[in-house]
Amino acid sequence: MTVNGRQLCAAVPGRRSLAEFLREDLGLTGTHLGCEQGVCGACTVLLDGRSVPSCLVLAAQADGCTVSTVEGLADGDKLHPIQAAFWQEHGLQCGFCTPGFLMTVYEFLLSTHGPTEDEVRRALAGNVCRCTGYQNIIKAVMAADLMWER
């Protein structure tokens, strides 16, 4: 498996989820577990470039895959433009759902330039935020679209 650009090899129990593997075995605790029911989107990571709820993927299923998590977004001290946009627009409060949103937005904006607000809302319909009421998250995505040269 390749995680955030690093190749690694590990043996895991069959029932270990990808989220648990990232959090417990690799110490990548930025991926959060909000429901473990595949609904809230907090645990969203990119598996071979596609967003997935990592609570519903077994670690073993990701064998040979490329996994991207929130820890891989920033370039050293420099926040990724999506992160910078969330900061600028007050797109987070408690921040628990934020890593999942960031990964969903990353996938969305990579393939979509100049989205409408409605398209942004549809793209994020699988992520739950309990603090912000989404308004500033939507604003942040619109801002990130302009800030991110891609």
């Binding site: 605790t29 959060h32 929130v70 920033a74 926040l79 992160q83 900061w87 921040g95 934020t98």
Partner: peptide, 16 residues
């Protein structure tokens, strides 16, 4: 917010 960079980087410390 000063709270945000850590949260955005996935480097916050929740109990779990």
């Amino acid at each position: 917010r000063r709270e945000d960079p850590q949260l955005l980087r996935g480097e916050a410390n929740f109990v779990d």
